[in-house]
C-alpha cells in the first residue's frame, strides 16, 4: 500500500516535471490490436492498430491500458493484447497482471473480513506484510458489536503457509493483542465499565486465489482474554473475507 502511494506520488511529481517527455512506446507484434472506447470489455472497438505500428502507453486502469497511436487515436487496450507487443529491443512486454505467479511474489496484502465473535457480528480490516513465501506478519483491527457490549480487538500475528504453491492453501496463525470491551449505553446502570485486556490467540485458515488480484480467506480463531478476574475468558471467532495484493 505504502509502496503504491509512493509510486503514485513519484508519478505525479514526474508527470509535472517531465510533461514534455514522450510516453513509453511498444510495437504491435500480432496481426492487430483492438482499441476500445473505455477500460472494459463491453466498450465497443472503434479502431484497430496494425502489426508493426508503434503506440504510446499513457496510463492503466485495472487490466486496461490507454494507448495513443501515431495518428493520434486514443483508446483502451486490454492487458492480454499489450502483452503481445514488443519493446525497442524486440523483447515481449510483460506486466504485473495479478496472476497466481504474481500472487506468489506479492509483498503486501490488504483486506477486510466479516464474521462472528462469540455469536456477535464482527468486521475486521487487516494489512499483511509477506516476508517469505511461507511467513507473513499481519496487523488486524476487529470491531464486534453485540447487544450487550462493543468489543474492539487489535491483533498482531504471524502466519505460516505450508504450501504456498497451492491455489487453495491452509495456514496457521499465532498472535497477541488487546481487547477493549465497552458495555452498551442502555446497560450502563449495571455498573460495568469499559475494560481493556491482553489477548493471545491462535488460528487456522484457508486462503483461495479466486481471480485476478483477489484472494478469499476463511479462518477460525481461538482467543484467550487475560482478565483480572479468577478465570480467563475464552473467545471463538469465525471470519470470512477477501484480500487484494500488491
Amino acid at each position: 500500500m505504502l509502496k503504491v502511494f509512493v509510486v503514485v506520488l513519484l508519478l505525479n511529481l514526474s508527470s509535472v516535471s517531465v510533461a514534455t517527455e514522450k510516453a513509453p512506446e511498444v510495437q504491435i507484434a500480432e496481426q492487430f490490436i483492438e482499441l476500445h472506447t473505455g477500460p472494459a470489455v463491453g466498450y465497443p472497438v472503434f479502431y484497430v492498430a496494425e502489426k508493426g505500428e508503434w503506440v504510446e502507453v499513457l496510463k492503466r486502469k485495472t487490466t486496461w491500458f490507454k494507448v495513443r497511436t501515431r495518428k493520434g487515436q486514443e483508446g483502451w487496450v486490454k492487458q492480454q493484447s499489450l502483452a503481445l507487443t514488443l519493446n525497442s529491443q524486440a523483447q515481449p512486454v510483460r506486466f504485473f497482471d495479478g496472476s497466481f505467479e504474481n500472487f506468489q511474489e506479492r509483498d503486501f496484502e490488504l483486506g477486510a473480513m466479516g464474521g462472528v465473535l462469540e455469536s456477535v457480528s464482527s468486521v475486521s480490516v487487516f494489512g499483511t506484510w509477506v516476508m517469505t513465501e511461507n511467513i507473513a506478519a499481519e496487523l488486524s483491527f476487529t470491531q464486534a458489536l453485540g447487544d450487550f457490549s462493543e468489543n474492539q480487538l487489535l491483533f498482531a500475528s504471524l502466519t505460516h503457509t505450508t504450501f504456498p504453491e497451492w491455489k487453495i492453501s491452509p495456514y496457521i496463525r499465532l498472535g497477541a493483542g488487546q481487547i477493549r470491551t465497552k458495555p452498551r449505553a442502555n446497560l450502563v446502570q449495571g455498573g460495568d465499565e469499559t475494560r481493556t485486556n491482553d489477548l493471545v490467540g491462535a488460528g487456522i485458515g484457508v486462503r483461495y486465489y479466486l481471480a485476478r488480484n483477489f484472494v478469499v480467506k476463511v479462518e477460525y480463531q481461538s482467543l484467550l482474554a487475560l482478565t483480572e478476574r479468577d478465570e480467563n475468558e475464552e473467545l471463538e471467532q469465525w471470519k470470512l473475507g477477501f484480500a487484494v495484493f500488491f
Binding site: V4, V8, L11, S14, P24, E25, W54, T62, N87, S88
Partner: peptide, 26 residues
Amino acid sequence: PTTKSVIEPDLERRDINESEIDSEDF
C-alpha cells in the same frame, strides 16, 4: 514488407517500464 522497413525512421524510443505507467485503480 521488406521495402516498407527501408523507410522506417530511425527514432529513439522510450521503453516501457511498468512502474512508470500511471495506474488509476484507486
